[in-house]
Each structure stands twice: as C-alpha cells, then as structure tokens.
Design a protein around this nucleic acid. Structure first.
Lengths: 207, 207
DNA sequence: TAGATTGTTAATCGATTAACAATC
DNA sequence: TAGATTGTTAATCGATTAACAATC
C-alpha cells in the first residue's frame, strides 16, 4: 500500500506538523484541508493529496482529526525516537545551533560538542560539554550519537564527515557550503545559506 | 530570447558560481560540462541546459570559458551591486549571521543590527553597531538598507517584517519557522531549518 | 436530506534526461 | 580530418492542479 513518498511531500511534513501541533495545543479537534490551506498558503488539493500519500485519512464532509494527524506525522517523522546529536565546530554558527530552541520540538537532543581549540575544550554550552575532536571516537561511542552536525570551515568538512561516519554516525547535517561525499547508507542533508542569498540577490537585481 | 529562468535553475547558480570562482582563482581557463558535472555531482546534460537557459554559451568541442562564466553569473546574480543588510534580533543566530564569513563573497554587507534589549543596544559586532529597534526608521533611511534579516522569535516575525517593509526594505530573509506575509513586490526568502531536521529524522527512522 | 469535505483519478504543468546534429 | 563537446529538441519523469464521485 505504501508507495514511496515524494521528496516534495516529505519537505512539507514539518510545515504541516507545526500547525497541527499548534491546533492540538489549542485544543482544536478538527481541521479541514481548506482551512489548513488558508493558514499555510498552499492549496487544499495539495494537502489532500499529501495526506493521501502519507496515509492520513479524514472524515468526508467533516475534515481531519487533529489528534490523528498529529500522531500520524510524529510516527512518520520518527519523533517517537529521540535523536542524539553532536555538533562539530563550535564557532558562531555551532554555538547558535547548540542554543537552538526548536530542537526538542523535533525530538532532537544535543549530547556532545566538539572542537580542536584548546580554549574551548572543557567548556559547556547549555550544560553540554565541548570535547576534544581527537576524542571523537570514545565520546561518540559512549554517548551513542546518531547525527553529526558539521559547522567547521569548508576545507575541513569532508574529513570531519569521514571521521563521523567511521565512528558510527548515521546521519549528517552539513552547514559547510561545499559538496561532501558519503556512502549511500548515510543520510546527508545540506544546509546551504548561499542559495537563499542568491535568490534574494537575483530577484532584487531584476528591479 | 530571455525566457523565464526556472526556480530550480536559479537555485543551482550559486553552486555553479562557487566552483567557477574557484577555477578562476586557480587560473583555469576552460571547463567542460562533464568535468564540472563530476565536481558537483550533477549531470552534464543538466549543466548544459541550465547554461543555455542562463544565456551562457560555450565553445563546441572545447568547453566553457571560465572567465565568461564567472562574469555572466555575477551579472545574473546581481553581484555587481553591493547589497546592504540589517539583522533584526541579535540572539545566538543573529550573532552568528553578523559574523558570517561568506557574505562578502556574495556581495552582501551588513550595515546595521537591531534589537530591543537595553543591554545589547550600543554594542558592536564586527564593527557594526546594534541599534534600538525603535529607531529602525531613521537608521534604515540613513544607511540605505536593501535587505532585512529576521532572527527574532516566531511570534514577533510578522510584525518585524511589516516594520521593515514600511521603512522601505525590498527583500526579507526570514529565519523564523513561521509563514509570514509580504506584498508581492517584496522578495521573501525563508530559511527553515526544521525541513532539514525533518528529512534526517524521516530517513533515519526508516532504518 | 442537503451541505460539506474527503479520496482518488485524470489532466496539466514543469523539470530532468536522452539523443544527436552542429561545429570547434 | 577525427575527436570532443556544445546546443537544442524531443521524450520521460515527477509533481501539482482540476474535477468529481463517494459519503459523512
């Protein structure tokens, strides 16, 4: 029954989930595709098609149950697990992520920070310790890290990725604006800020 | 001649540009679509089609001139302009962006920072002053700000956007994970980290 | 029952890939 | 000329939108 869910649909799940969670917290019981569409600025048809693909069913003539949607999306996103993260590179961006408030909402927990700078090692951010990157292996094994976040300079990104994978990390969230290679069994997500900047510049210069 | 360039193609320009610039700096004269494809992990067909759409022409049997590509993409992205940015909300993320090293590469320059916190107002980051958000109007007018960067809490994002637009900002780079509404003449780019997180969680939980 | 809204298929739109003629 | 690579169109693939029957 469960055909492959398209990338575009998967990318919309967190958008849906945020609003559904908000409605749930506001004690709303039912949401129709057209009302949700208005809130999120997408079409109701797309919402119904996405929900169909996601296996979320509603009640004809009524709408979708908020609690069912919420639970369904949490299962889909694997939010019943708690993902354990390590951030490598505690510069400005690494520090900002170490303090990021929205991680818990998505079931993410930061368990370790890494850097090579003597002055940083041993310090704590938000109660999480900064370890020597040379000790990556023992710390990752001890703390069972699922996901490595790469916030090091471009030139170091690939070798940090290789190290993370060699100690058993299964997913990589890469903030270095450079293409890194990983084996197919590793999940790689790139966060490239220059795409957004480029869009701004492109559209503004058209005026 | 110049049909509308697709969103997907525009999103790939900065990826191409980074490598082309690197080749230029390394004094390479010519790059073929197949060699570029190997570096970037896309198909040569896509590169040729994108370059066609972008109006970049090469030399049959030889390849594309690196200097022509570089200049062409800079024009396309409007990098001949210098865009002036203001960051609103100098928390961890705002601070990280205020220190971001890749802005100059894309022709971006941070001219002002804003916050409402008495303890921050008057301080400087990287030589750029933090102003009182209440003084947004006079500072923006004086400094000619093109783009506003929103790194405030979700609940404030829409009102900050409204204020920025009312003082004449033309583009908005929004980091709050919430849908904000802007008039059609304003360029809005959303940077939603939860999409990346959601992808990681989804793919890891499939294993 | 009448009104509303889902579920699902078909039609359309858009983006990628394949193919190959043109030509350096 | 032979080899290489672009330029461009057609074919394919994938995602969105339209339409409407099913049914609460």
């Amino acid at each position: 029954m469960n055909a492959k869910i398209s990338r575009a649909t998967i990318d919309r799940i967190p958008i849906y989930y945020r609003t559904v969670k908000m409605l749930f917290d506001a004690d709303e019981k039912i949401i129709s595709s057209s009302r949700l569409a208005k809130i999120l600025d997408v079409t109701p048809e797309q919402i119904r098609k996405d929900f169909l693909d996601l296996g979320q069913s509603g009640i004809k003539g009524v709408g979708y149950r908020v609690d069912t949607l919420k639970r369904g999306m949490e299962n889909l996103l694997g939010l019943q697990y708690r993902w354990h993260l390590a951030i490598v590179g505690i510069g400005h961006l690494g520090t900002a992520l170490a303090n990021y408030k929205n991680f818990p909402l998505m079931g993410f927990q930061i368990n370790a920070l890494f850097d090579v700078d003597e002055n940083l090692i041993g310090q704590k951010i938000n109660g999480v310790k900064i370890y020597d990157f040379a000790k990556l292996d023992s710390v990752v094994v001890r703390k069972i890290i699922d996901i490595g976040v790469i916030t090091v300079p471009d030139t170091k990104a690939q070798s940090v990725a290789d190290s993370l994978i060699s100690v058993g990390v299964k997913g990589i969230w890469n903030f270095a604006p450079i293409k890194i290679s990983v084996p197919p069994e590793i999940t790689l997500v790139n966060e490239d800020l220059s795409i957004g900047l480029s869009n701004l510049s492109y559209h503004l210069s058209k005026k």
